[in-house]
Each structure stands twice: as structure tokens, then as C-alpha cells.
Design a protein around this nucleic acid. Structure first.
Length: 642
RNA sequence: GCCCACGUAGCUCAGUCGGUAGAGCAUUUGCAUGGUAAGCAAAAGGUCACCAGUUCAAUUCUGGUCGUGGGCUCCA
């Protein structure tokens, strides 16, 4: 007999060979139904994997995240079996569970088309009906290699396993796959799934290797969960900034204007200008000095900085004129270095915080371009802070706090903070271990002292130094780098930056690179998706729409109000067209204008306005002054509506 | 850049098993004048992304180019 200790501390004895399913069934039949797999001494066991030793067992029930992974992993296998039946030459790469489902990478001479997914789904249902058990076996490396002798992908994976690691193989009817597990034990446990899309994916994620066909799918325990997930995917399409950007006339892309070269339409530019003014003011109050520098610069400038050597492939090609080489700038750091050096600096001058709204151009791979999210011409509020070493901590922290403030004002949420460090890869980072060690230790110490929790990522640093990246999760569930604070000991050296210290000697300043809220392009895509196009009042391109009931009777008063609002600094519009009231209201609603004001006899007679807030059905009549106060307070509150 | 799919009016889409196309909304013009999500009618609007090939004939079939989308790679 073996002793099984359950999670709640209770102990039970079983015959050796008992399975997690058996343990669950011995406790309650309801539990058996809910159990998908189990942790046995910390290792995930299949529902039907026998246990032969004394062990601690923690049953994994359907409501746990691990259960979703197990289910989706098993569904990936189920799909692979179906694919193998339909495409006998198919070989398989990897097929893991992912956050919202699973995928499997497939190599076959045939091209699997979107319309084939239905056929594969049908075959999967057939296999479910066959109630095929998923049986786990353990192999030695040599045995496993014999088993998969005609599958180059599996052989490569086996080769990379640690020596001595147990190689487990799952047999599911005629289908055999190398796999770590765990699984749901039998195909009959898989019920509610859908294959979603087909895409290309490089083998091992390496763009030099062949491309496999990847099928994405998702699998759930209940039909309700599956339907809810599919509805969520639909809902995401409604939030897509490309769709909203067109509907609300925010930006425009045109093939003749250039791929990835977005044009801002009046509505979009209005929002951008509000953001620019907001950031300018925020920085001004935080002691930043604003500058402006050209979009074009010499190639030499970027050779001095080292950018050209590291990023030439991401820059537009060099232009030649008068025997000199020019490039479109991919960033502004070098210009700011030159500005710093344009006069003699004293230790008393530092820190010097230079800021600029910078337009820059980067050559992004054509396949990477996406709406406003990934473009080739972008504008961002960039800053370089020149400090003495003793000022690093206070200035990094101040920049960090400014970022927190801006993200909060925009109504966005930080997902996590990342500390990007270098790794050993040669040539990727500039070569000065002493400086690197120091810079990395300064960043770590600062985060630790301030109790900021963060994830360390090796190899993600800039070539000139470590960086703190602030990651935001978008409404589309993408994690993106919103803001960054980077420490740089390299560029000051390359540009020979100095200041005169208290001792009268020359010293080298340190540069802090700071990106506040990504680029306007990317920020706009995030805000569109975040607010589903219904912008908070302070950002809304049109804040109120005035609708006179009858333009003859009420048009004059409406016009007076309109001018009054404009004078007060609001973005007002008036719709006095000879159209039905309902028609004009509908149009304002589809444009998601925050306030609609209908002006009729009542309003003219009593000097009031009747408004309807976007998203609400109710109408309210208030005095003109009360309305203006309401608007001002809401603009002031930014995203925090009272 | 790579794999797959897609590209029809300003927008959203239908259609042509090869005989140069249609709807709704938007636009323009009449008529209607109204209290919270589409009043009625008419007109105008398209080299069916572009370039080749096959064919008596191509928007439709084939090839290429460009663009867009889903992914992969990349993202200072």
C-alpha cells in the first residue's frame, strides 16, 4: 500500500498504481468529475497516470489555471492526431498550451487552408467519440530516437533534452507523440473547442529555418466558457483601433502616401495636440527644457553615437548630397548630446533635462506594420537628462514618478515593471564590463530601495545601458512597453560630454534616456482600444454637439452658445442641418461625442441647456453656468470622472 | 522579410460556374420642419488594387507586383 497525503493534510492509503482519477473518485464523485489532473510531489500527472510511491497529491480541478493548460495541451494532441489522419505525411513540431488556448506546428507537403479547419474539427469529434485513452510511457534516449527515427523535429527536441531526463511519450490510439504531459487521460474528456486560425511559424522561432504551418485553437470545459471566449474575440474586433480610427476619422493610411506612414485627420490631431500640450506642461513643471532638432542628420552623427553600427538595418538608407551622407533620424539622442556640448557646463547646471517632441523614422519589416501600432514614421516625447553620478538616483526616480503620473492621467494601468539587463552575447552591447556592472547595480539598488517590484530580463538592455521598462496591458490584451528610463554611460563618452566640477576639473556626466508615453501613434492606438473610441472629455476631439430643434426658431441661440463654449476653450460643434432631431442625435452618438445638447423653446426661454452624456439615456436640464462648471470639472479630472 | 488568406462605389458588403456590376449608409438636389439613435423621393458615384498571360471575350482563370489582415521573425 502507498500513503497519499492530500493538500488539506489528510492521509489515505491506496493500492500502488492508483491514479489521480481514482483518488478523486474515492473522495467524492463530484470531485472526480471536476478533476483534470494532479500535482504528484509537484509534478503534473495525467488523470490516468498510475502512482506507485508514497506521495503528496494536489488534485487539479477544472477551476484552476493549470487545468485549462492541461485541457488545451490535450486538445493540441487531439488535433495533431486528426491532422495525421487527414495528412498522413504530417510531421509535428511543438504543440503547447498558450494563454487562451493552444497551437500545434505542423510540417506537411499539403497546404492546410482556413477552410480545412472544419474538416479537422470534424475528425477531432470523431476521435473524441472513439474515447481513445492517452497512455504515458517512459523511454531512454536511444529508445526514443529509434521510435522517432523518421521525424527530424522530434529527434532535434530529444537531442536537446538534458542527459538523464526522463523522456515521456504519449500514445493515443495510432498516434504517438513525444510530450512532457500532463493530459486529461482520454479523448472523451475534451468537449468544447474551436480551431481559430492557421499561420506560418519558423521552426524553433528561428527565421533562418524552415517555416511550419501553425494551427491555433482554444478548448474549454463548458460550452458557456467557449462561447464567452469566442464572444470576447468578437468584442476585441470592435475595439480594434484600425476599425475605430476609420469610423471616428482619427487617422488615415494610404498606399500612395507610403506603407506605415500614417496621416492624422482633424479628430486625431486634435487629440494629439491635447496630449502634446499636456506633456509639454507636465515636463515644464518638472524642470525640463524643450528644444527642437531636425529630422535629417549626418550619417557621421549616428556613427559617433554608435547607432549606425547597431541599427543600420532599421534605418532608411543613406542619402548623398555635396559629398556628405545624411540619414533620416531614427532617434534624437545624438542631437541632444550635441546641444549639451554646445556650451561649457558647470556642476551647478546639472541636472539638465532636455525634452523634445521628436519625429523619427525607422525601417520596420513590412510584415510587422500594423495600423498605428507599428509604423515607420512616429513622433514621441523624448527626453535626455544629463546628471552627475550623485544625481542618478534622484533623477531616475523623478522620471519614473513622472511616468506614473502620465500613465495614471491617461487612465492606463501598469502591468509590470521590467529591468532589462545585458547578457553575454558579443557585439550586442558595448564592451565595458565595469561600467555595465555599475549601471546595473545602480538600477537594481534604486528599484529595491523604492520597493518597486520588477522582473529582470537578461539580454534586453539597450546597447548603451540597462533600462527600466514600464509595461502596460492593452484592452486587446497585448503587453507593450509604454515608458522607459535608461541609464547611459556610453554616449557621454562617445560625444565627449563634460562639465566642470567643484574641483575645477572636467568630469563626465551620465545620461538618462526617458520615454514618457510611447509614441503618439502607438499611444493613440492604445487609447482608442482602451476607451473603445469614447474618449474622456479632456481628450475628446469634439466635446459637445449643439442641436437646435428648429434652426429658424432656435438656431440663433444655439450659435451664441456655440461661440460662448468655443471662447471658454471647449471643442464645440453645432449641427443645425435641416434634418430630423433623431437623425442628428444618432450621428452624434455614432461619433461618441461626450455631450449632446438639444436646444429648443425651453432652453431659449429659460437660458438653460439640456444635455445627454454619451452612454447614458437620461437627459438633464441645467443652467448654462452650471453646465460650464460641470464641463470644466470633468476636463480637470481627466480620466477620473466623479 | 517569411507562411497563409483577402483586395468590388467615400464606408460596410453582395454578385459574376468568363459576356465590363448591385444594395444599404454617406454625397448632391427636391419635398417634408422636428424634443433625444436613421422622414420621403430622385440624381450622381466603380479601368471590380495594379501589370502581364490564356481566351473571340477577363472583374471572374493563371502568373507577377503592390497593399491589407492573421501569425512568425524583428522592435534601439
Amino acid at each position: 500500500m502507498i500513503n497519499i497525503t492530500l493538500k488539506d493534510g489528510s492521509k489515505k492509503t491506496f493500492e500502488p498504481g492508483i491514479t489521480p482519477e481514482g483518488i478523486a473518485g474515492s473522495i467524492a464523485s463530484g470531485l472526480k468529475k471536476k478533476t483534470v489532473a494532479a500535482y504528484v510531489d509537484g509534478v503534473v500527472y495525467d488523470l490516468n497516470r498510475p502512482i506507485y510511491q508514497h506521495a503528496e497529491v494536489d488534485l487539479i480541478t477544472k477551476d484552476q489555471p493549470t487545468a485549462f493548460e492541461v485541457l488545451n495541451h490535450s486538445t493540441a494532441h487531439l488535433m495533431a492526431q486528426a491532422v495525421k489522419r487527414l495528412y498522413p505525411d504530417a510531421k509535428f513540431g511543438v504543440g503547447p498550451p498558450i494563454k487562451e488556448g493552444f497551437y500545434y506546428d505542423i510540417a506537411t507537403e499539403s497546404t492546410i487552408k482556413e477552410e480545412d479547419l472544419e474538416k479537422i474539427e470534424a475528425e477531432m469529434r470523431r476521435i473524441i467519440k472513439e474515447q481513445i485513452p492517452m497512455v504515458r510511457d517512459e523511454y531512454s534516449e536511444a529508445e526514443a530516437k529509434r521510435l522517432f527515427h523518421d521525424d527530424p523535429y522530434k529527434l532535434e527536441l530529444i537531442d536537446e533534452l538534458e542527459d538523464g531526463e526522463i523522456i515521456s511519450v504519449y500514445t493515443q490510439g495510432e498516434f504517438v507523440d513525444l510530450c512532457r504531459g500532463g493530459h486529461v487521460g482520454n479523448t472523451k474528456h475534451i468537449k468544447h473547442f474551436k480551431l481559430l486560425s492557421i499561420a506560418g511559424a519558423y521552426w524553433r522561432g528561428d527565421s533562418d529555418r524552415e517555416m511550419l504551418q501553425r494551427i491555433y485553437g482554444t478548448s474549454w470545459f463548458t460550452k458557456e466558457d467557449l462561447d464567452a471566449h469566442l464572444a470576447k474575440l468578437e468584442e476585441r474586433k470592435e475595439r480594434d483601433h484600425r476599425k475605430l480610427g476609420k469610423q471616428l476619422r482619427i487617422f488615415h493610411l494610404d498606399r500612395d502616401a507610403g506603407q506605415g506612414l500614417a496621416m492624422w485627420l482633424p479628430n486625431g490631431y486634435t487629440i494629439r495636440k491635447v496630449l502634446e500640450d499636456y506633456v509639454y506642461d507636465l515636463e515644464r513643471k518638472a524642470g525640463y527644457l524643450h528644444v527642437s532638432t531636425p529630422v535629417l542628420g549626418t550619417k557621421k552623427l549616428y556613427q559617433i553615437s554608435g547607432h549606425f553600427d547597431h541599427y543600420e538595418e532599421h534605418m532608411f538608407p543613406v542619402m548623398e548630397r555635396d559629398g556628405e551622407s545624411f540619414v533620416l533620424r531614427p532617434m534624437s539622442c545624438p542631437h541632444h548630446m550635441i546641444i549639451y556640448n554646445s556650451e561649457l557646463r558647470s556642476y551647478r547646471d546639472l541636472p539638465i533635462r532636455l525634452a523634445e517632441i521628436v519625429t523619427m523614422h525607422r525601417y520596420e519589416a513590412s510584415g510587422a506594420l500594423t495600423g498605428l501600432e507599428r509604423v515607420r514614421a512616429m513622433t514621441l516625447t523624448d527626453s535626455h537628462i544629463f546628471v552627475r553620478e550623485d544625481q542618478i538616483k534622484q533623477e531616475v526616480l523623478a522620471a519614473y514618478n513622472l511616468i506614473l503620473r502620465a500613465i495614471d492621467d491617461l487612465g492606463l494601468k501598469i502591468d509590470y515593471v521590467e529591468l532589462a539587463l545585458r547578457d553575454e552575447e558579443k557585439g550586442k552591447f558595448h564592451d565595458d564590463d565595469e561600467k555595465w556592472d555599475y549601471a546595473e547595480s545602480v538600477m537594481k539598488a534604486l528599484l529595491d530601495e523604492e520597493n518597486i517590484s520588477y522582473r529582470e530580463v537578461k539580454g534586453e538592455a539597450a546597447f548603451y545601458g540597462p533600462k527600466i521598462d514600464i509595461q502596460v496591458r492593452t484592452a486587446m490584451d497585448h503587453v507593450i512597453t509604454m515608458s522607459t528610463v535608461q541609464l547611459d554611460f556610453l554616449l557621454p563618452e562617445r560625444f565627449d560630454l563634460t562639465y566642470i566640477g567643484q574641483d575645477g576639473a572636467k568630469h563626465r556626466p551620465v545620461v538618462i534616456h526617458r520615454g514618457l508615453v510611447s509614441t503618439w501613434e502607438r499611444l493613440m492606438s492604445i487609447l482608442l482600444e482602451q476607451y473603445k473610441g469614447a474618449f474622456p472629455l479632456w481628450l475628446a476631439p469634439i466635446q459637445m454637439q449643439l442641436i437646435p430643434v428648429n434652426s429658424e426658431a432656435h438656431g440663433e441661440y444655439a450659435n451664441i452658445l456655440h461661440k460662448y463654449f468655443i471662447d471658454k476653450g471647449f471643442r464645440s460643434s453645432i449641427d443645425a442641418r435641416e434634418e430630423k432631431l433623431g437623425y442628428r442625435i444618432r450621428e452624434g452618438q455614432t461619433q461618441k461625442i461626450p455631450y449632446q445638447l438639444v436646444i429648443g423653446d425651453n432652453e431659449v426661454d429659460t437660458n438653460t441647456v439640456t444635455y445627454r452624456r454619451y452612454g447614458e439615456k437620461a437627459q438633464k436640464t441645467v443652467s448654462l453656468d452650471a453646465f460650464v462648471t460641470l464641463m470644466q470639472e470633468e476636463v480637470e479630472a481627466k480620466t477620473k470622472r466623479h
